[in-house]
Computed example of a mutant assay.
Amino acid sequence: MNTYIDKKCEYISEKEVNYFFKKNINFIKNVVNKFIFSKYIGADKNDVDEVCQEVALKIIKNDYILKYSSKKSSINTWIYIISRSVAVDYMRKNNRIYINVDDLEDFSECDREKNDFNIPEGLLSERQNEVVRMIFWGDLNAVEVAEQLGITSCTVRCIKHQAIQKLRRHFSADDKRRIRS
């Protein structure tokens, strides 16, 4: 990695890069570890190490340290986004299986009683139904859903909004107070 730093980073010293990673490596490992083990079947510690190396390589290769701006986001948010993006790319590249919420059948009876709300068949489009299930029953946010479906997070939010509007019209809740999700 040191030879790569010498070749690529013209404006930042190796000492500064090493300081950056010594200071932030635990945060990077925690983000990668939590993401990989919560989203992918069959992941192991080697995957976490590989992704952490990929994160470091991406930050160095693309001179991201120089491009970081505290006006746009905090350092932790910036590292979090890079780490998650690299983890998703790595797991896709290695054809890892994503945990699909619909495939999980081992809900307890208590959980089934909580989730007895059924969306009427044909009310929502297939895409709207998929987005609603991933967000509300899969506990994913718009960015995670977008990554899984290969669309933008803005599109996910738009699909979610359209689906909620259809559900409100169907259940006559248009004029009632909105509940934020």
Score class of each variant (00 low, 15 high):
159 I>R: 01
24 N>Q: 06
150 G>N: 04
136 F>T: 15
132 V>R: 04
34 K>L: 01
131 V>N: 06
58 K>I: 15
151 I>G: 08
170 H>G: 08
91 M>C: 07
122 G>E: 08
94 N>K: 12
105 E>W: 06
170 H>E: 14
133 R>K: 12
23 K>H: 09
103 D>W: 03
72 K>D: 03
39 K>M: 07
32 V>I: 05
116 D>L: 10
152 T>N: 09
110 C>Q: 12
160 K>L: 10
126 E>Y: 10
120 P>H: 02
28 I>H: 01
20 F>A: 07
112 R>Y: 11
27 F>L: 10
127 R>G: 05
49 D>T: 10
126 E>F: 08
83 S>W: 10
127 R>A: 15
104 L>Q: 14
80 Y>R: 11
35 F>T: 05
131 V>G: 05
42 G>C: 03
96 R>C: 04
176 K>V: 14
145 V>Q: 08
174 D>I: 15
138 G>N: 06
58 K>G: 14
178 R>V: 15
4 Y>W: 08
147 E>C: 07
160 K>R: 15
168 R>D: 11
12 I>P: 00
28 I>P: 02
173 A>N: 08
26 N>P: 00
123 L>E: 02
160 K>Y: 07
26 N>Y: 03
76 N>F: 09
85 S>L: 01
95 N>C: 06
82 I>V: 07
171 F>I: 09
77 T>W: 03
43 A>D: 05
46 N>E: 12
128 Q>H: 07
131 V>D: 06
150 G>F: 01
62 N>P: 05
161 H>Q: 09
181 S>N: 12
133 R>N: 11
10 E>I: 14
136 F>A: 12
57 L>D: 12
3 T>A: 07
30 N>M: 10
120 P>W: 01
47 D>L: 02
56 A>R: 12
97 I>F: 03
80 Y>A: 06
123 L>M: 01
12 I>V: 05
53 Q>N: 13
